[in-house]
């Protein structure tokens, strides 16, 4: 079994035709399904939040069988994730993609649970503290992508569970919980 670091690659990763976008609909659906699962799995275990289509990404090429995904194929697989709400394009030209192995709603739930677990129901924290503070160490929030974190916080703000307020610089936006 081929590995990328400590990540076990599925066998289809070594089968060359999976690197060419298949023309027949049913075959392509199966192919896209396998790639979607692989991308989400890999990003989840490696804590990767953003994939750049033009950049080097370990899953996009397999040196063992000398195959790599075309731009078209990369876009097809990521678009499939986007249409399921498991990813979002970060720009109009579709060069960067935000990977949501937890949906925004699920991230919001994780934040709420984190707040409850730590008894922070009506405290104030900075956004930066949420993703790198001592409380978040060892939780899923540690090292969370800032864009995703802010999106989840905005969702909670929308529901009236917290208020976001601006600090003096961009780095110290604060959050007042009222859960």
């Amino acid at each position: 079994m081929q590995k990328l670091g400590d990540f076990k690659l599925p066998p289809f990763f070594n089968y060359p035709p999976y690197f060419t976008l298949q023309p027949v609909r049913e075959t392509r659906e199966k192919q896209i399904q396998l790639w979607k699962e692989l991308i989400l799995d890999y990003c989840r275990t490696q804590k990767i939040f953003v994939i750049g289509l033009e950049e080097e990404f370990p899953l996009f090429s397999n040196t063992v069988i000398e195959r790599s995904l075309t731009h078209e194929a990369r876009q097809a697989f990521l678009s499939a994730l986007v249409s399921e709400g498991r990813a979002e394009w970060l720009d109009k030209v579709r060069r960067k993609c935000l990977i949501l192995w937890h949906r925004i709603q699920d991230w919001a739930d994780i934040i709420v649970n984190f707040v409850k677990d730590n008894g922070l129901e009506d405290s104030v924290m900075t956004v930066e503290e949420l993703r790198s503070g001592t409380e978040s160490r060892g939780t899923e929030l540690q090292g969370l992508d800032r864009t995703i974190l802010l999106r989840a916080l905005k969702l909670l703000e929308h529901k009236g569970k917290l208020a976001i307020f601006k600090g003096t610089s961009a780095d110290d936006e604060g959050v007042k919980f009222s859960i």
Binding site: F19, T20, V24, E66, R67
Partner: peptide
């Protein structure tokens, strides 16, 4: 290919399409 028995592979460096 249409029946789903084969898959195409255009990725080889000789540029020839392979039917797997």
């Amino acid at each position: 290919l249409d029946e789903g028995f084969a898959m195409i592979d255009d990725g080889h460096r000789d540029g020839k399409r392979r039917y797997w």
